[in-house]
């Protein structure tokens, strides 16, 4: 389970990525943040952001709240 949830539903890319980029430095290392994002570009851009920033992309999930992406702060 994620430690916290960022609800970015209804936002178009790059907004969900920006929201994740703003939040991650504020949480302790090891924290898993779940980004809810229904823009299809998020499926590509959130893992790509993790790769570029050296953060851990845990998984993409589709749950009751729609598509979601778990990121763990790695450093």
């Amino acid at each position: 389970m994620p430690d916290e949830v960022l609800d970015c539903r209804g936002q178009r890319c790059p907004l969900p990525v920006i929201a994740a980029a703003r939040r991650m430095p504020q949480v302790p290392v090891g924290t898993v943040v779940r980004v809810l994002a229904d823009d299809p570009a998020a499926a590509v851009d959130i893992p790509a952001w993790c790769r570029m920033r050296g953060q851990e992309f845990v998984a993409a999930i589709t749950g009751p709240d729609g598509p979601a992406y778990d990121i763990r702060r790695a450093h």
């Binding site: 178009r12 890319c13 790059p14 990525v17 823009d39 299809p40 570009a41 499926a43 590509v44 851009d45 893992p47 790509a48 952001w49 790769r51 570029m52």
Partner: peptide, 23 residues
């Protein structure tokens, strides 16, 4: 980028490569 396409989907090419699609 998805915002520039009529379908609002990112390029399937960038998607298949797993590279950033916005901007």
């Amino acid at each position: 980028s998805s915002c520039t396409s009529s379908t609002l989907r990112p390029s399937h090419v960038l998607e298949a490569m797993g590279v950033l699609s916005h901007g």
